[in-house]
Design a binder for these strands. Structure first.
Lengths: 137, 137
DNA sequence: CCGGCGCATCGACGCATGCCAATATTGACG
DNA sequence: CGTCAATATTGGCATGCGTCGATGCGCCGG
């Protein structure tokens, strides 16, 4: 029910050919538009060089947290821009935000990383790890 | 050497606190701008609902390959748009392109998925899996 | 040889996004 | 209470990107 007119010759391989393709949830079954709409914001959030590095910097920092003044010197960007990117990461549940005195600390959320990793490795999107979307805004 | 003036109180945790953060390459060490520039195009490629679903559709199809006429009916997009998205996925090494007669088949590249997954799970970016950038263009 | 079909390319349009300068806000400190 | 430091917000600008319609190209059947 997928062909248009004259169906092209298909390889009717029973799947389970190479190890990778049969275990990642992306390959288990066609992802629905709703599922995609859930995950894409997360991917968009890390699909930026500054944000990906920010995330990595926070993750590799002591206590997996860092204040803005720790992160800014790593970039050629202005402080408002860094702040903007951190906001995006926060609104998508990738970073927690905690104000301590004058400083604002951003802390990594392992669940978010797990949710992203599960796209490529583990079982289907874990709904428990998916609630991370409710963190921001 | 990272504080600005009066250093805020830091948690000097020796890391290795929870299982996840210490094993993903993003958390091992601060990602360099060059590394980010390598990975970001891949992330951008899948950070789109249509492209993510296309990738999933191909991955879950028989033989992990599909022709355009198989994919188009899943979307409310025009054929040129689908073709454009497939081109993006191809240029970033996520899909292989093979013309068989009238039809063009797009086939998943496991190495690309592995490269992406390694961001969140395995060791640092595998250079062997990274050559996938040279597939397109 | 010709008509149709599958797919790609092109050009244009509108919206989203990254960036900065300027300014506002919040908390610490005297 | 006034000032300064750290961070967030705003507004505006330029670029990027997703989308479509129109069109071009290659392959197959008649």
């Amino acid at each position: 029910m997928s062909k248009s007119s004259r169906s092209p010759q298909l390889r009717e391989l029973p799947l389970a050919d190479d190890p990778l393709a049969s275990c990642t949830p992306l390959a288990r079954e066609p992802m629905s538009a709703d599922q995609a709409a859930q995950v894409v914001p997360l991917l968009k959030a890390i699909a930026d060089p500054a944000r990906l590095r920010l995330l990595s910097l926070v993750l590799s920092h002591e206590g997996r947290e860092a204040c803005v003044c720790d992160l800014t010197p790593y970039f050629d960007l202005t402080q408002p821009t860094i702040s903007h990117h951190l906001k995006v990461l926060h609104e998508n549940g990738l970073l927690d935000r905690e104000k301590r005195g004058t400083w604002v600390f951003y802390k990594a959320r392992p669940q978010a990383m797990a949710a992203l990793g599960s796209l490529f490795t583990s079982g289907t999107l874990d709904p428990a790890a998916n609630d991370l979307a409710g963190a921001g805004a």
